[in-house]
Amino acid sequence: MASSQTNLIFSFLLTLNFLFFLLPLPSSATISLCSPNAIYQLGDSISDTGNLIRQSTSPKASVFAHLPYGISFLGQPTGRCSNGLLMIDYIAMSLRLPLLNPYLAKDSDFSHGVNFAVAGSTALDSSFLAENDINSPITNSSLSIQLNWLKSHLKSICHTKKDCEEKLTRSIFFVGEIGGNDYNYGFFRGLKTMDEVQKILVPHVVQSITRTVMEVIKLGATQVIVPGNFPIGCLPIYLTIFQTNDTEAYNEFKCLKGLNGFAMFHNDQLQQALQQLRNAHPNVDIVYADYYNAFKWVLHRAPLLGFDKDSLQKACCGSGGGKYNFERRNLCGVAEATVCPIPETYISWDGIHLTEKAYMHIANWLIRDLTPKLKCLF
């Protein structure tokens, strides 16, 4: 009985979330991304809506297939790496589109787009990472694999190249966020220094992303959004592993300055590469999604947004206790982990991914930032 009541409550809250995005906003804050009729998403756990948990021969082996993941989204896990909805969910709702179904849910409705993102995926193929002594432990569904899925899907819905181009004219493509895991595995599993990761991986990650953007343009895409990286020095996983007694290593928000500098370097390199693509494809909207500053905006205004000022770098779901409540050997979802009483007061969900509420505010910031940068061609 209690479970049934809980599900009704979550259903009601989800409805309120959806209605919120249908409410008219002042003209200065109008949410509109040119009214596309489809979204195609490539990426990793920031946007995976259920591909990873369907990829395994034993899907329930993934912690993302179990509570407390999804506890705020109808009270059940969907494969999303959060307590509830993700940014791509809020963006879809703001466009009056259904939530994107994962590509590997083969019996799903894909009439308004497809989500190809896979949690744990990398921008670079696992073979390249292995050549540099970096292990990719979760999935081999790198960006190139996801691009092949996209091509296969389009072949199934397009009769001719012209037909495909017409369909894609009213579609938005998200290429990323991707590359974060390449760096994670480099730092945590390849035992690389920050300089090594920056020198060895960043140029290749950026090249992989831009190459994929060129490929989707060839397929007929006219609107492509390419996100950058978050300020990783503010995430509990990095704060725990790179914890130091050097107070100069932290900024005013107690984030690690060096790691944030690394994220900015990636973002700068990506933006320069995207500008070259814009010059080569002036009739295509190639827009950078500034995840870094969107996250900073939320962090700077956290108390005003209802987040607990004493838990800004703490994981809501974790087992580590202490400053960050993060333990690499006992992640969210294992028996030792506990969940904070009110996830809505936390930015970080599990030390790696964010809470539904944090994603909602970041998505709102991004939509307002992206809208004027997209030419409405229809």
Rank of each mutant, 00 (worst) to 15 (best):
38 A>I: 07
44 D>T: 01
41 Q>V: 10
235 L>C: 14
66 H>F: 06
101 N>P: 03
7 N>Q: 15
225 I>V: 13
211 R>N: 14
56 S>P: 07
112 H>V: 06
194 M>I: 12
162 K>A: 06
170 R>S: 07
348 S>Y: 14
100 L>A: 06
27 S>M: 07
256 L>G: 02
203 P>N: 07
212 T>V: 03
117 A>D: 01
234 C>Y: 14
192 K>C: 07
245 N>H: 14
216 V>F: 00
367 I>R: 11
199 K>G: 00
238 Y>Q: 03
174 F>L: 14
157 I>L: 03
82 S>P: 04
206 V>Q: 06
24 P>N: 06
218 K>Q: 05
152 S>Q: 05
350 D>C: 09
13 L>A: 13
47 S>R: 04
98 P>M: 05
223 Q>T: 15
39 I>G: 03
326 F>V: 07
105 A>T: 09
135 N>K: 04
350 D>Q: 02
164 C>I: 04
110 F>Q: 04
103 Y>L: 01
129 L>W: 06
124 L>H: 11
69 Y>F: 15
63 V>M: 12
196 E>W: 02
174 F>V: 03
335 A>P: 09
36 P>D: 09
246 D>F: 06
127 S>R: 11
305 L>W: 12
228 G>M: 02
241 I>A: 13
349 W>S: 10
175 V>A: 12
67 L>S: 14
174 F>T: 08
262 F>L: 14
354 L>R: 09
245 N>I: 10
336 E>Q: 08
349 W>K: 03
353 H>K: 01
148 N>V: 04
174 F>S: 11
29 A>V: 12
232 I>E: 09
27 S>I: 08
68 P>K: 11
253 F>R: 13
62 S>D: 12
42 L>F: 10
275 Q>W: 01
43 G>D: 00
368 R>H: 14
121 S>A: 04
333 G>M: 10
19 L>Q: 10
244 T>S: 13
219 L>S: 00
16 L>R: 08
279 N>M: 07
77 P>S: 15
83 N>F: 07
19 L>C: 09
278 R>I: 14
321 G>L: 06
376 C>A: 13
213 V>C: 07
92 A>M: 05
276 Q>S: 11
50 G>Y: 14
231 P>M: 08
67 L>D: 10
22 L>K: 15
117 A>T: 02
235 L>S: 14
1 M>T: 06
26 P>W: 15
219 L>M: 05
167 K>G: 00
33 L>G: 11
185 Y>F: 12
21 F>T: 15
339 V>N: 12
316 C>F: 04
168 L>G: 01
169 T>L: 11
221 A>I: 02
233 G>E: 05
255 C>W: 10
171 S>G: 06
368 R>A: 09
333 G>A: 11
29 A>H: 14
41 Q>F: 08
47 S>E: 10
332 C>W: 05
60 K>C: 08
341 P>M: 10
297 W>Y: 11
120 G>K: 00
147 L>W: 00
363 A>G: 15
7 N>C: 11
29 A>S: 15
255 C>R: 05
84 G>Q: 08
297 W>I: 06
266 H>I: 06
61 A>E: 15
87 M>N: 07
9 I>D: 15
234 C>M: 13
186 G>P: 01
158 C>A: 02
136 S>I: 00
141 S>I: 00
150 L>N: 01
